[in-house]
Design a protein around this nucleic acid. Structure first.
Lengths: 208, 208
DNA sequence: GTCTATAGGATGATAGAC
DNA sequence: GTCTATCATCCTATAGAC
């Protein structure tokens, strides 16, 4: 048991360092020498743990999506089955944004470098992405079926905009305390009051 | 006059080629040799027209934002001054998405490589971005002032989500005929019915 | 204006000592 | 498991011929 725990320890350490570098520097700007130095190693030593740079990148990408996926699943599992779609979407948005901004380097690195990696790497990573997107498709479809979401909007479009809007928040949101919660509330309000089949719950109180 | 027209012709040709390559391959994957080959030149010849790779990249980035900016300004100028904010936002979204998907390589390249360029390049390019963002801030602020948009949503957040959602459509939207118009309509409907101070105009007709 | 040639340096990956 | 040393290749940029 203890053997198994220790088995991949330094491998995991290298991945942690790689994720941190990719997050802040981007894909192409991070060399194997950089990853090695950050890990307290020399470049050649990395090849004992990984057979190529691509393998490292793919593992960072997959881990990033998996953590967001698990965070959102956990948030949904924490709700009663009878919860409204609105509540579920709000919980999912909150969990996605928290994972992106607070849960470390893998999630941020994933969004940051996905568009920069070679096509072969992206291809290997796509199944993880598809799996997470399916969670959202299921959620939104259930909303349409139950009548809580409008039926006249293409769900692929809605899902893409939602994920796109959340992910680009990495580019401009400085992670101050409470900021993520506020952003999640605003985005949820914008999207839900547009996508919900019912009329807006609370009208804007603009004046006195 | 004819002299001036010809003056920067091959310089412009190089930029066209660079934009096309950056759009499809990303920033780091495109070398000066690639740009030269695409332009029908050798790498060394580029230095007659540009003093560094950074200069080429910055010019591609600035041109990309400028074209979107001009397209949106033209769309707004084509509306009567009395047009509602909703109509103006719809026109702006439509113009932004058309410029992104149909108006060529500079606009797409800009979105694609912005996150990949060195910090010094990004810094040089920021004024162009800020200028375009100001257009949207003005538009949204006018909507709040006139009472057509809710006053309880942070406008920086709204603007960032709108631009983010539109820009990421490059990642997943295959540019079929009519697709852009449909996406623009859907996004506009989602955002406006959430951000508008009035209640939803047309309730979802889900059945017969 | 475009070419060839090359400087000067970084990169991914491999071989073999320890 | 980690090291040193190195290969082969690529890069941006420069110098000088034509």
């Amino acid at each position: 048991m203890a053997v198994q725990i220790e088995e991949g320890a330094s491998r995991r350490h290298v991945l942690d360092c790689a994720a941190r570098l990719f997050r802040h520097e981007g894909y192409a700007a991070v060399s194997l020498r950089d990853i090695a130095a950050e890990s307290g190693m020399k470049a050649g030593s990395l090849y004992y743990h990984f057979e190529s740079k691509d393998v490292i990148v793919i593992e960072v990408l997959d881990t990033g999506v998996r953590r967001v996926h698990e965070a959102v699943e956990a948030a949904l599992a924490g709700l009663p089955g009878s919860a409204s779609i609105a509540r579920k979407i709000e919980a999912a948005i909150q969990a996605h944004l928290r994972a992106l901004h607070e849960a470390g380097d893998y999630t941020s690195a994933n969004i940051r470098i996905f568009g920069q990696v070679p096509p072969s790497v992206r291809k290997s990573h796509m199944p993880s992405r598809r799996s997470y997107e399916a969670l959202w498709s299921t959620l939104l479809s259930a909303g349409v079926t139950s009548g809580e979401l409008r039926g006249d909007i293409d769900l692929v479009t809605l899902r893409a905009f939602l994920l796109g809007a959340m992910n680009t928040s990495l580019d401009w949101l400085e992670p101050r305390s409470g900021a993520v919660a506020r952003i999640a509330r605003d985005l949820c309000s914008i999207v839900l009051n547009g996508a919900s089949a019912s009329r807006r719950v609370r009208p804007a109180s603009s004046g006195v």
